[in-house]
Design a protein around this nucleic acid. Structure first.
Lengths: 226, 226
DNA sequence: GAGAAATATCACCGACCGGTGACAATTGCC
DNA sequence: GGCAATTGTCACCGGTCGGTGATATTTCTC
C-alpha cells in the first residue's frame, strides 16, 4: 500500500526527529506520567500543574483530564507508581547480616538513606508533605508510612528491641534525621554547618547515625573499627 | 459638589470599628510585616505574594513596593526580624545545669525542639528552605545555621565532647530529626507511625531523643529515672 | 468503501499573579 | 493661607494558571 494519503505529503518530515505520530494511548499515558515526574523534580511541587506537565509531555493538557481525571488523579497514579517502585527497591536490598537489634536498625536506616538519596522524586514528595496538608499529601504520607512499617516488620525477623527502649520512637527519630539531611542537602547543600556534598561528607553522616543507633540499642557505641 | 466634604471630621463613621484613618508610615510598614508573617503561616510560602499580603494588611500592594522594594525586600526584612527574635528567644533560655557534655547537648536539642514548636513562622521558612533553592532561602538557611552554631559555641562553655566522637555530626543529626519531626507534626500530625499531637506524644519523643544523645556521648543511656 | 469510536488538538474562559503608572487625599512646612 | 512632599488608592498590563467545550484527525469495525 503506497502511502498515497495526502497527494503531496510524501516526505514532509524526513523522520529526522523520529517523530512517532501513531496514536497510542498507553504510550501517551506513560509520557504524561514521566513528564509529571520530571516536572516535579525540576520545578518542585509549586510548579507542578497541568500546563507545565502537558508542555513537558508534548501533548495537550486535555489528555491529562481525559486519561487521569485531572491533577488529583494524576497525582494518585504517580503515588501508586512511586509506592510500587520503592517497595521493589526495598525488597531488592540484601538482607543485612547482623547480630544485634541495634546493628539491624542501623543497617535499615542506612538503607533508607541510600534509597532516598537516589530518588529525587520522593525527595520532592516529602518536601511537599512538609509544606502543605491536603488530601493528596496525606495520602502520600500514609502510603509511605505504611510501606515503611511493613518493610520494617517483615525484615526484622526474630530480632527484638532491648527491653526498656522505645524502639518505634527511636527509629522514627533516626528516619526523620535521614529525611531532613537528604532534603537539606538537595537545596542548601548541607545542614547546620555540616556539608553534605562530597562522598566523604555522607560517610561522615553515616557513621554518626550508626554510632547513635548502636549506642542507643546496644549500650556501647563502639564504632566499627576504622 | 454633592459630596459635601465633611468640613470637620464629623462622625460619618461612628468609630464603631475604631478605624484609624490617620496616615502613619511606620504603622503601615509594621502592618505589612505582620501580614507577611500571617500569610506565610496560614497559606505557606506558595501563597506568599504581594496580592495576598496587601489584602491581609488592608492596604494597597503598591505600598509593599514603595516601602520594601517588592517581595524580595519584604522577605529580607522578615528574615532579619525572625533572626533577631530567635536570637532573643535562645538567649532568654535558662542556662542548663548539667554535668556532662551529653547532658548539655540533650538540653540544647530539647531547647531547639521547644523553640521551633512555638514558632510557626520558622517552621514555614524551614519547609521553604527544603523545597526551593533560591537566593532567599539560602539566605534564610545561612542565617539560621550561623545563629545556631554561634549559640551552641557560646552556651557550651567549658564542656568538650568525648574524644573519638564526631560531635558536630551527631548534633546536626539530632537537630535534623527535631526539625523533621516538628514539620511533619504540623502537616501530617505524626511521623512514620508515631503520632505527634498530644503532649504525651511529645514527651515520648523527647525521651527518645534524650536517650539517643546520652547514649552516644556518655556511653550509657540510663533514662532519667521515671 | 462507510460509519463509529478512540485519540489528539485548538480556542477560549474566568481567576489570580507580580508589577507599574497615574491619580487622590493627607500632612508638614513656610 | 499656599504649596510640595508624603501617604494611600485605583486601574491597568502581560502572563500563567486550572478547567472545559468544540473540533480535527486517526484507528477500529463492519
Amino acid at each position: 500500500m503506497p502511502n498515497s494519503k495526502p497527494s503531496a505529503k510524501s516526505p514532509a518530515k524526513p523522520a529526522a526527529e523520529a517523530e512517532d505520530r501513531t496514536r497510542d494511548r498507553s504510550r501517551t499515558e506513560e509520557g504524561i506520567l514521566n513528564a509529571a515526574r520530571s516536572v516535579l523534580v525540576e520545578k518542585g511541587f509549586g510548579g507542578w500543574g497541568v500546563n507545565g506537565i502537558a508542555r513537558a509531555a508534548g501533548c495537550d493538557k486535555q489528555l491529562i483530564y481525559r486519561y487521569y481525571g485531572g491533577l488529583d488523579g494524576l497525582a494518585e497514579a504517580l503515588g501508586t507508581q512511586i509506592a510500587r517502585e520503592t517497595e521493589a527497591a526495598l525488597a531488592a536490598l540484601p538482607a543485612p547480616e547482623v547480630d544485634s537489634y541495634g546493628a539491624l536498625v542501623a543497617a535499615l536506616i542506612d538503607a533508607q538513606l541510600h534509597v532516598l538519596r537516589s530518588h529525587p522524586v520522593m525527595q520532592r514528595i516529602i518536601a511537599w508533605e512538609l509544606s502543605e496538608a491536603n488530601a493528596l499529601t496525606r495520602a502520600f504520607a500514609d502510603a509511605r508510612s505504611r510501606a515503611l512499617m511493613a518493610w520494617f516488620a517483615q525484615v526484622k525477623g526474630d530480632f527484638t528491641a532491648p527491653p526498656g527502649v522505645d524502639a518505634p520512637a527511636i527509629n522514627a527519630v533516626m528516619i526523620a534525621a535521614v529525611q531532613q539531611m537528604v532534603l537539606s542537602s538537595g537545596t542548601i547543600g548541607g545542614f547546620a554547618g555540616m556539608p553534605l556534598a562530597e562522598p566523604a561528607d555522607w560517610e561522615r553522616l553515616r557513621s554518626a547515625i550508626r554510632r547513635l543507633i548502636l549506642a542507643a540499642y546496644d549500650g556501647s557505641g563502639t564504632p566499627t573499627a576504622g
